[in-house]
Design a protein around this nucleic acid. Structure first.
Lengths: 294, 294
DNA sequence: TGATATCTCTGACTAGAGTCAGAGAATGAA
DNA sequence: TTCATTCTCTGACTCTAGTCAGAGATATCA
């Protein structure tokens, strides 16, 4: 734990919350409690079911109901049961006045954001905005959690499915798992193997499997990262996790094969110390074979 | 107002507050309201006068008193009148238990900060930390406010004093305002002239004056930036503000002279379009004379 | 010395945010 | 058809945070 870095993060948190706190104040200017303002914002211009609001904002149903009542009393929203659907759930829509009010809040948010940029010159604004993008990106990367999972869990299966779909699209001749060398659930499950899923904000965004073989050699299989989560170094972390597990299981060598279409994967393997070797199997979809001593 | 930038700032604010909000939750884990926790933290290991706390945290005195009472009831602090000083003000110190508790909060903060870094690799950590430093720096730069001020206001006088102190230190032969060409209060005050002070967080951090002369020519004087606020482009903004004012007053040319020790000032003048010219006065401390057509 | 100001404290109050228990209507499963 | 479940709503609370008005002690100014 690098103390200088921790101190910088703490200081940053303090400064930024101070700045951002100004948003709450500007929201309160409208003379409406924050809870109501947030709710008004969340209803959105197309309307929402009450149950969805409850879930999204994570509110007690009684509390939410009261918030809705007060917005309704102000003439900002209307709630009604929607015909043709579950008669228990109620649908909330903004009245014209509500739309106007929401627009005002939106403008306030814009104004606050602009106040961050306003007195900077153009070059500084660019730097600020890209530093912000960088931080978001890295926070996102840091929020990824890599967890062991059995390969027939729903999450793992979903990842594998996405993986196959992607291979079909990217390989010149498509991809049919049945034609390919095996990596069955059993083979990637303890004690024979190992499987990990990468999670981000409650959804799986990547996976990878390890299949133990003969003579201390394991095989890395099914490495995949969701398209919307690339650039977060997820595959690298998955791979490192598999290697860790391989070492713990007493394996001394890892092998893998890959298709020439998957250039970013090859780059990763080389960067992580895998050496290209002669084909060690007859995988029909492979063009490159790699190996690493653990 | 660049929409893309505004959107990025808003998004950043959302993401970051979400992340940082975790701190509050972790503070609440200790089973103590946030207000008390903050106060405990602010008392610090050396103790503080109650009045200072009131001012720093901006709390109502009744409210603060009650918060202190509850921390006292928990055995975390002690308040006592300090001998040898104003008998009205009370001094708060942490008990050993209070010190321990404060240390725990500190550790929680560290842990949260660390959680930002934890699952990043070393290169990513460096990038995160420097992006954070960059943002802080730019937010600080953005918070600088440049305001017109009469040059005998307390803030202006303080700046001028600091300016003279700095010149004395930096010039080879020291600096004596009496030896130097004049830039009196009258000369830098409307209608003859103009004076601006740069403010940051309620304290003056820079200044600059404009002295109108003959034939549409004005002189820029007393450009200064506080050492702890350099790198924020304050001098540039002050200069631009003076030029704006000069144009509004119908001036068509600005002049200024400077000492060879002030290299960063010369760089600024050149960057802002000032041309070095032959000496146009006999200022004894000057080595370079500049001029710009407005 | 007396008037005024300052500092801390107590009492009485408010608003926001949220929790919890249950009621009533609609829905779904056996 | 019945029984359990889901969804929304009302009523009754709680806790935190904060405001406001003064009281009592101490300090300062004229």
């Amino acid at each position: 734990m690098n103390e200088h870095q921790v101190r910088q993060v703490r200081h940053f948190n303090r400064v930024v919350t101070q700045h951002v706190g100004a948003l709450e104040d500007s929201y309160l200017q409208r003379g409406r409690p924050l809870g109501q303002a947030r709710l008004l914002y969340e209803v959105g211009s197309d309307g929402t079911d009450v149950r969805v609001l409850r879930e999204r904002l994570n509110l007690d149903s009684g509390y939410l109901s009261r918030l809705l009542r007060s917005l309704e009393a102000e003439g900002l929203i209307q709630t009604e049961a929607q015909a043709e659907s579950d008669g228990r759930v109620r649908h909330v829509v903004l009245t014209p006045k509500g739309v106007a009010e929401r627009t005002t809040y939106d403008a306030l948010s814009n104004k606050l954001a602009w106040s961050f940029l306003e007195s900077l010159d153009l070059a500084q604004r660019d730097r600020l905005v890209s530093a912000m993008a960088e931080i978001e990106h890295l926070l996102r990367a840091g929020a990824v959690d890599i967890r062991a999972e059995i390969p027939d869990s729903a999450a793992a299966q979903w990842c594998l499915e996405q993986y196959f779909i992607e291979l079909s699209a990217r390989f010149e001749k498509g991809f049919d798992p049945a034609q390919s060398n095996s990596a069955s659930i059993q083979e990637m499950m303890p004690p024979a193997g190992f499987f990990v899923v990468a999670w981000l904000d409650g959804t799986p965004v990547g996976c990878g499997g390890l299949k133990a073989g003969m003579e201390g050699t394991g095989e890395v299989k099914r490495m995949w990262t969701a398209p919307n989560a690339r650039g977060l170094k997820i595959a690298r972390r998955v791979l490192q996790r598999l290697e860790m597990q391989a070492r713990e299981s007493g394996l001394t060598r890892l092998r893998l094969e890959t298709n020439r279409a998957l250039t970013e994967a090859q780059a990763l393997y080389r960067a992580e110390g895998y050496q290209e070797v002669e084909p060690f199997n007859s995988e029909p979809y492979a063009h490159h074979w790699f190996e690493k001593q653990l």
